[in-house]
Amino acid sequence: MSDSIKKDENDVALAAEYALRLLDDEDQSILRARVLTDPDFARLVAQWQESFGGMAHAVAPVTPLPATKPALEKRLFGQTPRRTLWNFAGLWQAVSVASIAVAAFLAFTLINLAEPEPGALYVTELASENDALRVLAVYNDATKELQLSRTSGGPSSGRSLELWGIVDGENPVSIGLLPDAANGKLVLPVNLEEALDGLVLAVSDEPAGGSPNGQPTGAVLAVAEIFRI
């Protein structure tokens, strides 16, 4: 390096001026052309950029506003790349037989306590990836009620958890907010009632009071297909 400084101090200084953007537009674009055509000059510029970059060490980091990242991802990817319901298709298919069995057992326990003569039962367990949220859902055909039993987790502060029913190929339909209490009941909308076989349930994180637009807007925490037992 010291050789090339002796050889051409002018280039070394020019490369620094270019890297710093000290010159006017015209000179700056002349040098830019040179960066693109003259490897030695490009090397000098890169060396300066590396040296000057050390100055940024002294610049205090400033945490961006929380809204900036989703805005950026929306600009780049068209939509906030939250997990969509369909990304979870693989997840719920992978739900183990064991957990279905447990859900079924719990369902009988629940139903036996509540209903002396249950109709057809449909059951599933909705569990988030890390099991932070677990909800047992049991639908009783006789009472048309969906019994929900939250065994783990709940909405974060100022948020609500919303339950959705998804018929294959159609948009999610809101069933309602998960009850605040660990155990509660919701009524299935009629169109879901008629599509119980293969019905998928999902829980999403929503603003307090639920999704403002009738479709999931927040992260989908758990998805599972409901099974007749």
Binding site: R32, V35, L36, T37, D38, P39, A42, R43, V45, A46, Q47, Q49, E50, S51, F52, G53, G54, M55, H57, A58
Partner: peptide, 29 residues
């Protein structure tokens, strides 16, 4: 973006430049 990523710069002999950075930080000040 060409200014700092053009392929011309591929000729930059810089295995050492990556290592140089942390010392550059102190060095430049």
């Amino acid at each position: 973006i060409n200014d700092y990523s053009d392929s011309l710069a591929s000729k930059l002999p810089s295995p050492e430049s990556n290592v140089a950075h942390s010392s550059d930080m102190k060095r430049v000040s």
